[in-house]
Design a binder for these strands. Structure first.
Lengths: 118, 118
DNA sequence: CGGGATCCGACTTGATACTG
DNA sequence: CAGTATCAAGTCGGATCCCG
């Protein structure tokens, strides 16, 4: 984590628990949101930025590059004028959707729980 | 993360996607590890610290307090000399175990995948 | 349009020492 | 044993400007 995020390959290469490995990939402030947006759609850079309130282009680029390196996201560039770049999940990236949905499911229950506590 | 971790209650109170809510609770560098350790055991402060390589007492305290506030972890103090404090998951905390296991499962597959890519 | 480069502050985290 | 206090270091992320 979470970020806080990317454990480098040089420090202890095997994680204590594999949960860490997953959170290194999908954790952080923006990645879950990006993945959530790409779950059902292919999106361009600008569209992505608009769905993510307040993200700076720098951050968006950085997160997308990391997701790309991890084999989760595919970046397709069309050399037109003006340029167009589309982002989508790779097949491997799609394997994480159920995990995201499990997280979402629990999040919903958790928020309900917090509401009833008020 | 997951931290970079705790989204304050003041900024937009409803998340874009509930995945965020979950990662606010279990994300970050240490929390998944702590939860993983408490999954099957009740542990004392020192035992926890020993299973988490390199965590400082300050960090451990902080993470445990946050988990406690979120209703995930129970802190039980025995006023003995020397003092003894035991940490365990609450019933609500246990509901997150399947989510952790889903994360772990994917993490294992992800690490395999990365190995074969080398 | 889709970024890269640079700068900078705020917040997180770590190391170390100390205490009831 | 189970922390707190203090200080230093690191990281994250935003702002701004620029380019092909």
């Amino acid at each position: 984590m979470i970020t806080q995020n990317k454990t480098t390959d040089t420090d202890n290469c095997n994680y204590i628990c594999p949960v860490e490995a997953t959170l290194d990939v999908i954790g952080g402030k923006w990645k879950p949101l990006i993945l959530w947006q790409l779950k059902d759609d292919i999106l361009r850079f600008n569209s992505l930025q608009q769905t993510l309130p307040g993200i700076s282009p720098k951050m968006l680029t950085k997160q997308l590059r990391e997701l790309e390196e991890d084999g989760i996201v595919k970046r397709e560039m069309y050399p037109e004028i003006p340029p167009r770049v589309e982002y989508s999940l790779t097949d491997f990236g799609r394997t994480i959707i159920p995990v995201l949905e499990a997280l979402a499911q629990w999040g919903i229950e958790y928020m309900d729980q917090k509401d009833t506590m008020k």
